[in-house]
Nucleic acid binder design. Structure first.
Lengths: 114, 114
DNA sequence: TTATTATTAACCCCTATGGGTGAATATTAA
DNA sequence: TTAATATTCACCCATAGGGGTTAATAATAA
C-alpha cells in the first residue's frame, strides 16, 4: 500500500492541469525542462516549480546531463494511487449496491402487499 | 470523461488524510457532521470546512433534516478520477513496456554479435 | 576569456488551505 | 419564552501554491 503521506503528495501533485499535461507529455518519453515548458503560456520558472512538485511526489525523475535536465516518468506512485482509488470505488459502490438491493427488496415486498 | 476542472477539485479534495477518513466513514452509510468530526482531534469547525471542500468536489451530498445535516457519498467523481488514473497508468506503463522490449531486443542483438 | 544557453534561486504578489476561537443562526426541548 | 443542541459564519494565524521578475549558477560555444 501507499503510505498515506505518499498518497497526499501524489494526489496533490495530480490535482493541477499543468502538471497533468506535463505528465502526459512525459508519457511519450523523457524531455528537458525547456521542452516541457514550451507548450504553456506561463514562465519557465513556474514550470520549474511544477516539476519540483512532481519530483517531490516521485512522479518524475531527473537525470542531469551537463546543463540539461532530463525528466522522465516514475510509474509507481500513480500505480499506488490508481490502486487506492479502484479499491475505494469498489468499497463504496458495493455499499450503494447493497442499498439498491434493499430498496428493491422493499419494493417487491410492498408490491406483494406485505 | 471528467471535465479537467472537476478532476482538479476531486483530486485536491482527496489529497488530504482527514477528508479521505471522512469518506471512509461515509462508505458505511450517511452520518451527521458531529459524528464525522468525533474521531478527529481537530475542531468541529475544521471538519465543517473539510466537508465543504468535499461538497464542492461533489464527493459528498448534504441532506438537511431539521437542525441535523446528513452527509452521504456521491460515487460519480471518484469513478471518473479512478477511470482517468487507470487510463494514465495504462498509457505510461505501455510506454515503459515498449522501452523494455526495445532494450531486450538490443540485448538479444548484441548477444548475437550484431 | 567571453558569450550564450539551460536551469534554478531569491524575491514579490495574491489566493487558498488547514488550524484555531467566538458569535450567529436554526431547530428542538423544557 | 427560554434553554440547549447542531451547524455555520466571521474572523485570526501560518503555510503553501501558482503566477510573476530579476539575479545567480553551471555548462557549452565562440
Amino acid at each position: 500500500m501507499a503510505k498515506p503521506q505518499t498518497l497526499d503528495l501524489t494526489l496533490a501533485a495530480l490535482a493541477d492541469p499543468t502538471r497533468r499535461a506535463i505528465l502526459q507529455r512525459l508519457s511519450q518519453g523523457e524531455a528537458r525542462v525547456t521542452e516541457l515548458a514550451s507548450p504553456f503560456p506561463i514562465s519557465l520558472n513556474s514550470v520549474s516549480k511544477h516539476i519540483r512538485i512532481l519530483e517531490r511526489a516521485r512522479l518524475v525523475r531527473r537525470r542531469r546531463a551537463g546543463r540539461e535536465h532530463f525528466l522522465s516518468l516514475e510509474q509507481k506512485p500513480l500505480d499506488e494511487a490508481a490502486t487506492w482509488m479502484a479499491g475505494q470505488r469498489n468499497i463504496w459502490n458495493a455499499r450503494l449496491d447493497v442499498l439498491e438491493a434493499l430498496l428493491e427488496a422493499e419494493d417487491v415486498a410492498s408490491s406483494l402487499g406485505t
